[in-house]
């Protein structure tokens, strides 16, 4: 009984969580980063294909090389989401299972080296549903494979390795292929980003790309992301969906949550991440933030970029990028 929970660390976390010393915050960009990966169709029906792009920010003007791949079954987070099989190993398993080699060809895992990639749902849905049945009917699954949820969707892990200036970074993102007929999820959308400050922008002003908006250094600006709202003032893109809670309390319809991550190149954000949670946290809480622009001594460049990434909790992702000019 004593073992299961340690409240001590909770209390300790409250105090020590703040003590991160001189670490760079998650939302500050000072090194090679992959801030988000987006598929234009995060959920695929049989026969569909989707175009995948990434929000990559290199250091300075260094070039970036890309390497895309996909994988149906990975080894999980502690192994860095490495694929559990090579394509040939998977082909061999499939051939043994179908007992007809060549009937089902597993496409290669590589998806190219351009800045975008295309993934096609080019295996029959039956392939994925039979993997799930095999798992549930007592098939032998190797130790190191992370078991999928198997609720009508099957996760495909998209893996991107970027290299720039000698350093590399790996990013993963999941998209779902459906083997049952379910409503498809779509990405959220951002309409606009506005800035406001009594002295120079007394009215909320859209942040334009050309010409760049000029901001003063070392002061606070109120930021506002504009998202489509319905008649009640709720974000229309927080789609309702059927949710089966793991505690078996019965299906219910709930709305998606929307998480906003505010990435900046300099200065400080009041909150690195905000979220809309129906009904606890309203959308106005989530789409507003405060940016303290950097001083010259701390950030010498004359322009600074901001990226706002919005994600729903069902693999939908979108982002909005803007550049600001900083005046002394």
């Amino acid at each position: 009984m004593r073992s299961v929970l340690r409240f001590g660390p909770i209390v300790g976390l409250l105090g020590l969580a703040a003590c991160t010393g001189d670490f760079t915050p998650y939302n500050e960009i000072d090194r090679l980063r992959v801030l988000a990966i987006s598929a234009d169709k995060p959920w695929l029906a049989e026969g569909d294909s989707t175009r995948i792009e990434a929000l990559v920010v290199p250091v300075g003007d260094n070039t970036v090389t890309y390497n895309w791949s996909w994988c149906p079954l990975t080894q999980g987070s502690s192994k860095g989401y490495e694929c559990a099989f090579t394509r040939d190993e998977l082909q061999q398993q499939v051939d043994e299972a179908t007992m007809m080699p060549g009937l089902l060809r597993v496409p290669p895992f590589e998806l190219g080296t351009s800045s975008t990639a295309v993934y096609a749902y080019n295996l029959p849905a039956a392939f994925f549903s039979s993997v799930c049945s095999a798992i549930s009917m007592g098939g032998e699954i190797p130790d190191f494979v992370e078991l999928p949820a198997c609720d009508g969707t099957f996760p495909i892990t998209i893996r991107l390795t970027v290299t720039s200036n000698g350093e590399s970074l790996t990013a993963v993102k999941e998209i779902y292929v459906l083997y049952e007929d379910l409503p498809l999820n779509t990405n959220p959308t951002i309409n606009d980003l506005k800035v406001k400050r009594a002295e120079d922008y007394p009215e909320p002003t859209s942040v334009t790309e050309s010409p760049l908006l000029k901001l003063k250094r070392g002061v606070d600006y109120d930021l506002e992301v504009v998202v489509p709202l319905d008649a009640d003032g709720n974000p229309s893109q927080a789609e309702p969906y059927l949710y089966t809670p793991p505690d078996g309390s019965g299906e219910k319809t709930i709305k998606e949550t929307l998480v906003f991550t505010w990435f900046i190149e300099g200065g400080e954000m009041d909150r690195a991440r905000t979220g809309y949670i129906d009904p606890d946290v309203p959308i106005d809480e989530a789409r507003r933030n405060i940016w303290t622009t950097p001083k010259k001594v701390d950030y010498e460049r004359t322009t600074a970029r901001m990226f706002v990434v919005i994600q729903d909790n069902r693999k939908g992702t979108t982002w909005f990028a803007r550049t600001f000019e900083l005046e002394d």
Binding site: L35, S78, G80, S168, A171, E174, V259, Q311, T317
Partner: peptide, 17 residues
């Protein structure tokens, strides 16, 4: 030894143990 790995859906890097 290893490059960092980020899970962009969860918005977190994962440690390689």
């Amino acid at each position: 030894d290893v490059s960092p790995v980020v899970n962009t859906d969860l918005g977190t890097y994962v440690p390689i143990v």
